[in-house]
């Protein structure tokens, strides 16, 4: 079994009201060094290793493009291992 992690982030320029709210909350807790907070999604996939590594990576990319992320508003990063 292979574990692959996918991190989905709102693209630069897309307003992240949730992140802004968390940023304000951190400031009110006294963490004045906080300059920006962006909140994204963390997705863990467990995959059968029947495919070779390249093909598997290609499949995960396809999963992201088709379903896990919306390219209009989100970027994603695939972290293997």
């Amino acid at each position: 079994m292979k574990k692959v992690r996918v991190i989905v982030r709102l693209r630069q320029g897309v307003l992240d009201p949730q992140g802004k709210t968390a940023e304000h909350a951190l400031h009110s807790l006294g963490f004045e060094e906080v300059r920006d907070v962006r909140i994204g999604k963390y997705i863990e996939l467990e995959l059968d290793e029947t495919l070779e590594a390249d093909k598997l990576h290609e499949h995960v990319k396809e999963m992201c493009d088709k379903l896990l992320a919306n390219p209009v508003i989100e970027d994603y990063e695939i972290v293997e291992g």
Binding site: V14, L15, P17, Q18, T21, N70, V72, I73
Partner: peptide, 11 residues
């Protein structure tokens, strides 16, 4: 249709 719908600005 183009674009996307995001969380309301004031959440």
């Amino acid at each position: 249709l183009p674009g996307a719908l995001l969380t309301n600005k004031h959440l």
